[in-house]
Design a protein around this nucleic acid. Structure first.
Length: 519
RNA sequence: GGCGGGGUAGCUCAGUUGGUGAGAGCGCAGGAUUCAUAACCCUGAGGUCGGCGGUUCAAUUCCGCCCCCCGCUACCA
């Protein structure tokens, strides 16, 4: 048993009625960076992702393809799993809602909500569009000149009544508002919190939580004609994976409640309203934070199949390189807001920050050590104020990163690390070690030592963002595997004079845009 | 309609508990330099800080009104 503090973080589980797209990749990369950060910072991390495989749409898509929902789920779930591998995601588990463990957990949470008196049977009635397979509110529909009532998508609707179980969401209005009040950090970023509060204040209706019109789902305990509304089942995945519901003393039970659910802004309501209400009802502790990220826009436009601007994450990675893509999204996009990207933008960022910035800094300092100091870390002489200042900048960065990563402000943490790079370049230029080589070799050695030491820290800090590239950088300054966690930042892990360094090699090549025409 | 967020340099954005000169990156122009991945460093570019009005000795920052953009406004997920 470790004495480390548990830290549980999740992505939303993806709906696999299609292949993963860039939005899925973005969420996974960001969550992975946060999980890696906490691990390096000494936490006992459990990082979960997976697929949400039930529901009407899965059944429908499968039918259209002439295959079973199981086959569709299996096929696409594997695509998501493969994407995780491609992106170097460090998730500790990959949950599928079709797994037996999840059916058990979902039925258990249902029973608990029922035992608490929050589930009742009634009938759901509304204007239903067969074509859209969706219900609409009366005011969303209109009766046209032909006397037929149409839904918002322009499809005819009919009045349908369906037997359904309901969850007494209306009973949780005050409790939820109190939650948002007492735990201001429960929802982030703030704009989303406002929206949620506004939504809850406008009044909550009971939620229909079962369906009888299709059967691809988890059976309602004691009434097998019904399957659970997908969201009841989907949200429960976060608890399922910890085993908390079935064995509170199990090996993973300690991870519940989750520290952070990282989701897209489109599903904030399910996570910030329904989910805590379900948990309260079932008597289960609430997650500490739900954080919604924004959408990625292709040159400012929403990606859509009709615009033909959908970007495949696999292509993006093979074109620019994995760490480059990870870096770009985490550096350029304010996490929590929408972000715009383009090939030019990615290329520019890679060259400015990675090639010209961190890569070049490592190269210019390490190559001088290789050429002038026999490739060994020199013994530093007395430190000047300039030396101390740049070391302090590096040493203090972890505090900033910890603060920002703790609030999901990934871009600010990355910005703080990039700041060390920029400061270091200024330091290096001001110290002019290439001049010192002829005038004061001891002083040159000190400058090179200090710079290499700063490179070490930059590399350690960059591990969550760019795991492979940061590792290469750490190899270049001969930091052993076991000394790469955050406890070795600062004084604790200073490079040892006399250490042999490998021959410097470029870690971040410049990106050269293909000659090809740009339409 | 209601609620919320936003309109700041060519582009993407940060920022001001109201006050000596409004910032960063990219792009651009000039300079310096040669350790380095034609990289790095320095300087500049002169933007009515959406519009109108108000409060104040003083507002881009506070208040009111108006214009524009975006999000939320429940049972597909």
């Amino acid at each position: 048993m470790s004495s480390k503090t548990p830290y549980y973080i999740t992505t939303a589980i993806s709906y696999p009625n299609g292949k993963p797209h860039i939005g899925h990749a973005y969420e996974l990369i960001a969550t992975d960076a946060m999980a890696r950060f906490q691990r390096l910072d000494g936490k006992d991390v459990f990082f979960l992702t997976g697929t949400d495989e039930h529901g009407q749409k899965m059944q429908q898509t499968a039918r259209n393809e002439g295959i079973t929902p199981e086959a569709l789920a299996e096929r696409n779930s594997n695509e998501f799993r493969a994407m995780g591998k491609l992106l170097n995601a460090s998730n500790d588990d990959f949950i599928r809602t079709t797994e037996p463990r999840h059916h058990e957990a979902s039925q258990e949470i249902w029973r608990r909500m029922e035992a608490n008196g929050d589930i009742y049977k009634d009938s759901y009635a509304g204007w239903y569009s067969v074509r859209d397979e969706a219900y609409y509110a009366e005011d969303e529909t209109e009766v046209r000149a032909d006397g037929v009532r149409y839904g918002p998508q322009g499809t005819p609707v009919e009045w349908v009544e369906e037997e359904s179980y309901f969850f007494k969401l209306s009973a949780y209005e005050d409790k939820l508002l109190k939650l948002y009040e007492d735990q201001p950090d429960f929802i982030g970023p703030n704009e989303r919190r406002n929206e949620v509060i506004s939504f809850v204040k406008s009044g909550l209706k009971d939620l229909s939580v079962s369906r009888t019109t299709f059967d691809w789902g988890i059976k309602v305990p004691g009434d097998e004609k019904h399957v659970m509304y997908v969201w009841v089942d989907a949200l429960t995945n976060y608890v399922t994976a910890t085993g908390y519901l079935t064995d509170q003393n199990g090996p993973r039970a300690k991870y519940w409640p989750a520290d952070a659910h990282i989701i897209g802004k489109d599903i904030i309501r399910f996570h910030a309203v329904y989910w805590p209400a379900f948990l309260m009802s079932a008597g289960i502790p609430l997650p500490k934070r739900v954080y919604a990220h924004g959408f990625l826009l292709n040159k400012g436009e929403k990606m859509s199949k009709s615009l033909g601007n959908v970007v495949d994450p696999v292509n993006l990675v093979s074109h620019f390189g994995l760490d480059q893509v990870r870096f770009f999204f985490l550096r350029e996009v304010s996490f929590g807001q929408d972000g715009s990207y383009s090939e030019e933008g990615i290329g520019t960022r890679i060259n400015a920050d990675l090639a010209n910035g961190i890569g070049n800094l490592a190269s210019r300092s390490l190559s001088m050590i290789a050429k002038n100091l026999e490739g060994k870390m020199p013994e530093p002489g007395p430190l000047t104020d300039a030396d101390k200042a740049i070391l302090a900048t590096a040493d203090e960065a972890i505090a900033i990163c910890r603060e920002e990563m703790g609030r999901q402000q990934i871009h600010k943490a990355v910005g703080a690390i990039m700041n060390i790079v920029n400061e270091s370049d200024r330091y290096f230029a001001a110290q002019e070690p290439w001049v010192l080589r002829k005038t004061d070799v001891a002083r040159m050695a000190t400058v090179l030592y200090v710079t290499a030491e700063v490179v070490r820290q930059i590399a350690i800090l960059f591990q969550p963002i760019m795991p492979d590239s940061a590792a290469k950088l750490l190899d270049l300054v001969a930091v052993p595997e076991e000394k790469r966690s955050f406890v070795y930042l600062g004084e604790a892990g200073r490079l040892a004079p006399g250490t042999e360094l490998p021959a410097p090699a470029p870690v971040f090549p410049r990106y050269i845009a293909p000659e090809a025409d740009k339409a």
